[in-house]
Amino acid sequence: MQVPIKISRAIHLISALWTLALAALIFGDVIGRTVFTAPIPGTKEILQNSIVSIAFLQLPLAIYSGSMLRTTIFADAVPPLARRVLRTFAALLGLLVFIGLVWSTLPSFLDAYRIGEYEGEGSLRVPTWPVRGVVLAMSAFVGLAYLQMIWLDWRGRLIDESEAPGAFAPIGGQD
């Protein structure tokens, strides 16, 4: 049962390092442009496609670690069982939204792959299927994460009623 959480941590770490790599890319592009008048081609394309990808790659862990933004004004005022029911309701809605995302992204992903959809032109053509694929795969994963959170919740395994065990541990300390 811990496997998806570990995978979400690994994916998160990769995307976090990817963010730092973007900083390095920008650094290299500007230095290349100003010092050698040779910018790194495609920097902008890499950046904009990376940002969507990174945002989605980081979502599963955001669910497991209870980082998604919400208000607890009402939940704080009701007994634990009611809180658990509210959490389950919230997670089911989350599941619904991400099923909707899978539903609508799947055809655009397949289409993009089939017709070789791309953006830009000439030397800057960027295929769109990889990013659509990331959105698709991660949406499915987030759906799974919401389901698992419900399961963990009703087995009383959530820490502070919000985190899956092992999701929040610092990267250095293994659980």
Partner: peptide
């Protein structure tokens, strides 16, 4: 939904 504690983005 926000009041009930649903994740804001989800709501």
């Amino acid at each position: 939904l926000i009041f009930l504690g649903v994740h804001i983005g989800v709501a």
